[in-house]
Design a protein around this nucleic acid. Sequence first.
RNA 1: GGAGGGGUACCCAAGUGGCUGAAGGGGCUGGCUUGGAAAGCUAGUAGGGCGUUAACGCGUCGCAGGGGUUCAAAUCCCCUCCCCUCCGCCA
Length: 426
Amino acid sequence: MTMLDIRYVREHLNDVIERLNKRGEDHSHLKDLIKADEQRRSHIAEIETLKAKRNEVSKKIGAYKREGKDVEPLLKEVESGKEKIRELEEQLDEVEAYIRKTLLNTPNLPHKDIPYGKDDSENVELRKWGEKPSFDFEVKPHWDVAVDLDILDFDRAAKMSASRFVVYKGLGARLERALINFMMDMHAKEHGYREIFLPYIVNETSMMATGQFPKFKEDAFKLTDERGLYLNPTAEVPGINMHRDEILSADELPIKYVAFTTAFRQEAGSAGRDTRGIIRQHQFNKVELIKFATPETSYDELEGMLANSENVLKALNLPYRVVEICSGDLGFAMAKTYDIEVYIPSYDTYREIGSISNAEDYQARRGNIRYRPEKGGKPALLHTLNGSGLAVGRTVVAILENNQQKDGSVKVPEALVPYMGTDVIK
RNA sequence: GGAGGGGUACCCAAGUGGCUGAAGGGGCUGGCUUGGAAAGCUAGUAGGGCGUUAACGCGUCGCAGGGGUUCAAAUCCCCUCCCCUCCGCCA
C-alpha cells in the first residue's frame, strides 16, 4: 500500500516535489526516498539470486534422496546462503517500512491546473446561483429560529451527550429526515446512482486506503474494541472501500453509488469555532456520492457529480456559489476539489455545504482498486471520486435562515412539501 | 458467550514435507461433428505483485492473512481474520 507511485516519483522527482510544495509544506525529503528505493531494489536482486540458487539445490536434494544418493555435500552448499538471506531480508524490511511510511504520509499531487494559493482565502469563486433573500425584519441565526420554534434542543443534547450534539424535535426532526429522503431520491432516481447503505464502523485498513490515516488519526472516534475500529467520519471511507482489493471490468465503469450515512468527527483542530448552532457537530448526517471511473473519464465524471450536487440546492431554491479549492487548501488525498457554499443570511456569507473531489488514482493505489482496461489485458488503477450530495445538517441551517419569516415561522421549500406534509414550520 | 466445521485458481474440489510452482470436474475459449443448434468427442485455460530486460523472456513471491521450523511447506508449529452449523442471549 503506497500512495504516489514510487516509480513515478523516481522518474519525476523534482517535478513531484515542486507540485507537492504548492500545498504549502516542503517535501524535498522525498529525495531520500529515491536512495532508499535504490537500496530496496539492489537488496531484492541479491535476495532473489540467493533464493534461486537455494531452490535449485533443494530440488536436487529431493531427487538425490529418491535415488538414495548422498545429500551431505548439497546441504553444505546451501548452508551459508540461509544466514545471508535472513540478514538481507531484515535490512529490506527496514527500508521498505521507511518507504511505506513516507509515502503514506505524503499527500496526493495537486492537479496541474488548479489555482495556486496558500489557504482558503485564495480559493477561486467560479459562479453564483440564486438570489440572496431580502428581509424586512431583523434576521435571526438558525439557532434562534430553531429554539424559538422548539425544533432544535441544544441543552438536552449536552445533558444526555456532550457539546456539539443536538436533539431535533417535531418538524425539525422531520425536516432532517425529509431532506435525507429527498436527496437520496434525487440521486438514486434522477441521477442514476445506485443506493447503498453502509456500516457506520470501519477498520483501520479502510481509513488508510482513503487517506484519513495515518495523518489525521486525532480526527476520528476510536472504539475501545481491540480490533482497531473507528466511527465512520464520512461515507467516503466505507464507500470507496467497497471495492478495495478488487479488479473491476471496464464495462461496469463508471460505478456510481449514493449513500446516506451519519458521520462522526472529533473536530479536534476546531475548538472554539462555530460553537453555536449546528454548523459544526460531532455527529451529522450526509448524503454522499461515490464514483469509480476510468482515468480517461474521471474529470468528466467530476463535473457531472458537481452538477448533481448543485441540483439539490437548485431544487430547494437556496442561493449558493461554487468555488475551486486552491493548492494550499486542498484535501490530503485529493487532486482537485470543488466546494459548494450555501448562503447563510445571519453570517452574510457563504458556508461550505458540499465538497466534490477527484482523488485520481491516489486512493485506488492505497486501496488496490483496479480495473481491466481491455479483456485479457493488465489491470490498471482506476480513479475514485466522492462528493457531498449534500451535508444534511447544513442544509437545515440554510433553509431555516433563508426561509425564515417575520412571524418566526419557516417556509418549507416547495420540493420538500411532499416529504414534510406541510408547507410551513411554525 | 459455549460446542463444532470450513477458507486451495472464475466456480466446485483432491491434496499431511521433495516426483504438486497444485490432480479431477464445471465454466469459459477454440477445433471436430451438424443444414444450424443441443448433445458428444477433443485441445487450451493462475492470476497478480515485485525485481530484471529495449523486447521475447528470466527470476522471485503466491493454496484466507501474518510469523516460525526446514536444504525444501498448501502440507508441521504459533498468532490473526473471515464464513458456516448447533446451543444460549438478543433488536
